[in-house]
Design a protein around this nucleic acid. Structure first.
Lengths: 184, 184
DNA sequence: TCTCTCAATGTTAGTGACTAACATTTGAAC
DNA sequence: GTTCAAATGTTAGTCACTAACATTGAGAGA
C-alpha cells in the first residue's frame, strides 16, 4: 500500500491545474503535465484514463443514490430524483464545494470539456435511474427522469461556477424548481 | 455551384454507412471511408468536420424552434419546450424518420458516439432556449428547461431506435410525459 | 544488512483523428 | 481554347491514447 502512486497522482493533478490556469486546457498536452510532475507521459495515462478525467469525475454518485432512495415513494420520479439531488449536494462540505468550483470553471470555459462532462455523467444517470426503479418507477421512465434531472443539474453547476456571488444550494434549487414547480 | 462536392459528400456518407454496418464505427477509420469513396482522407475532413458528424447532426433545429414559438405563452417553459418538440417531430416525413433510425441505431450501440450525441445537441439546446426566452421565460430557466427536454428527448430517441416495434411519436410522447404530466 | 519481489515507472513504437501549407487538377464560363 | 476558382491531392505534422517489454525502487523477510 505504498503511497508513492498516490503522491504521483497528486503531483500530476496539481501540475495539471497549474498548467490549465496558465495556458488553458486545450493548450496543455498530457506530456507537459507529466513533465511538470517529473514523470513520463505513460505514467500520466496510468493514473488518469484521459486528460478530461482530471477535471470531470463525480465521486458523489453513492451519495446521490442513497439520498434518492430516502425520498418518499409516493412522489413522481422527477420529484424523487430532484429532491434526492438537492439533499445530496447539501451534505457536501464546503472545501469540497470550493474544489468543485475550481474545476467546473475550467470545464465551463472549454467546449471540449463540456462535452466530456455531458458524457461523463452517464454513470451518475445510471445510479439515479437505479435508485428510482428500486422505488417502484418503471425502468423507462426512470432513465428519462434521470437524464432530465442530470441535464438540469449540470447546466446549473456550470452556470454557478461562473457566477461568483451565488451559493451552490440556491443554484441547484433554482434549476430543479424549473422541473418540479412548474405552475406559471 | 458544381454538384461535384455534393456527390463526393454523398459517396462518403454511403461508404461510411456501409463500413459501419460491416465492421462497426470504432473499427472504421476515416481513411478507409475515404478510400471506399475514391477520395483522400483529407477530402473526407473537408466535407465532414469529424467522423462523428457523419451520424450525429440535427438538421431539424429550425423546425423545433418554430414549433416552440407557436406554443401559447401562458405555459411554463418545460411544457412549451416539450409540446414544441412533440409537434416538430410529427411534421417529419417517414423516409426521414427511417433514416434517423438507421443512424441512431449505430449511435446507440457505440459509447463514444453517445457522448458525441450529447455534446452535439448543444446547438439544439440553444435554439430551444432562444425560442423560450422569446416567449417571456427568463434566460436561466430557459437554458435549464432546454437541457432537460433535450436530455429526455435524446434518451427516448436512442431507446426507440433499438426497439423496432414502437413508432416514434409514441416514444417521444412517453418521454416528455415524464416531464410534463407528473401527477403520479 | 542483504536479498527478493512486486508494484510503479520508463522505453519504444505505434494507431488514428484531426490540422496546416502548398501543389495540382478539374470543370465551367467566356 | 484560355482562364479562374473550386475541389482535390500531397506532405508533414500534433496530440490523445495504447501495447509490449524493460527497468527501477521500496518494503518484507532472512
Amino acid at each position: 500500500m505504498s503511497g508513492r502512486a498516490e503522491r504521483t497522482r497528486e503531483r500530476l493533478l496539481t501540475a495539471a491545474l497549474e498548467l490549465f490556469a496558465e495556458r488553458g486546457y486545450d493548450a496543455t498536452t498530457a506530456g507537459e503535465i507529466a513533465a511538470r510532475a517529473g514523470v513520463t507521459e505513460m505514467t500520466f495515462f496510468r493514473h488518469f484514463p484521459s486528460k478530461a478525467s482530471l477535471l470531470v469525475d463525480d465521486p458523489y454518485d453513492p451519495l446521490i443514490g442513497a439520498a434518492i432512495r430516502r425520498q418518499p415513494s409516493g412522489l413522481d420520479p422527477i420529484s424523487r430524483a430532484a429532491r434526492g439531488v438537492r439533499s445530496a449536494w447539501r451534505e457536501l462540505p464546503s472545501p469540497a464545494v470550493a474544489e468543485v468550483r475550481v474545476r467546473l470553471r475550467i470545464v465551463a470555459g472549454t467546449p471540449t470539456l463540456r462535452a466530456s462532462m455531458a458524457s461523463g455523467t452517464a454513470a451518475t444517470e445510471a445510479v439515479i435511474a437505479e435508485a428510482l426503479t428500486s422505488g417502484g418507477t418503471g425502468r423507462r421512465d426512470a432513465i428519462i427522469a434521470a437524464a432530465a434531472v442530470m441535464a438540469a443539474l449540470n447546466t446549473a453547476l456550470l452556470d454557478w461556477s461562473l457566477s461568483d456571488s451565488e451559493d451552490l444550494g440556491q443554484a441547484i434549487d433554482a434549476a430543479l424548481d424549473v422541473l418540479e414547480d412548474r405552475h406559471v
